[in-house]
Design a binder for these strands. Structure first.
Lengths: 138, 138
DNA sequence: GTAACTGCAAAATATTTGCATCCTT
DNA sequence: AAGGATGCAAATATTTTGCAGTTAC
């Protein structure tokens, strides 16, 4: 089992199981956002669909991964950065979805600019998704 | 039937039917984003679920409505502004989701700021969703 | 050993498709 | 009248729940 994955699980006081560390390792390796279908297919021979759902739900609750909103109504999951704590996501970077290869990347270095909201509105969380062509598909 | 709804349908060369104008009227009246469930419940006694799905899909194709990405994996639909044309959405404003009342509003006056992407990335479409407290829930 | 995790079966929910009928143009 | 739109039935896909067996600690 991947040591980094184990550490993350320990940090969040979760028991170390094969399915959890496998899913986490996949995220750590791929370094991009993954759809539920991708994850499920990757492990369909090893774990049950239900376990996948429960694992992902748990990771979201614990602030280990977060969902990325996409306009085409698919759910994408990506690793949170360390600042995420349980129940409160700080995900202040831009997500990029490539129209060509379909890959979603967290542009960790690209911060979301501050914006001025109309009078009366208070922001708690901002998400920004850019679609276009990524560096690998130019 | 609402005349404004009829005009929109005509503009997009769609035949005028009760279900289409009803759905469109709902959007015109509510002036906020609506979930599929909301729309379906509103008309469950009048139209079939299937008709709702087909109507919404058609409106999206024609550039009449667009989907709003949300982090909690629900799909929201909102009216496009006039600049939207078939197959190509220009939806360069910010969407605001109120954590209190759950309402999603299109902040038409708040434009999405230009951002600098990493080398190699080209943007075609940008979406920005802000969560927080809206003017009605302060 | 015990509490938590997993797998299986099945329920509940959401979405899509085919086809006969009805409505718009 | 003709083509498109709708409703119904049913197929398919997605997500959730209950419970018994298994595993981590």
């Amino acid at each position: 089992m991947n040591q980094q994955a184990i550490n993350i699980l320990k940090t969040h006081q979760l028991s170390i199981t094969v399915s959890r560390s496998s899913v986490l390792t996949l995220f750590l390796k791929s370094k991009k956002a993954l759809s539920y279908t991708t994850i499920e297919h990757k492990f369909s021979d090893k774990f049950d669909r239900v376990t996948m759902y429960r694992t992902l739900t748990l990771f979201i609750e614990k602030g280990i991964i977060h969902t990325i909103p996409t306009s085409d109504n698919t759910t994408l999951y990506a690793l949170c950065k360390n600042e995420c704590t349980e129940g409160h996501h700080h995900d202040e970077h831009v997500h990029f979805i490539c129209d060509d290869c379909g890959t979603t990347t967290c542009l960790s270095e690209t911060n979301i600019p501050k914006i001025k909201l109309p009078k009366g509105y208070t922001a708690a969380e901002i998400q920004m998704v850019v679609k276009g062509v990524c560096e690998r598909c130019i």
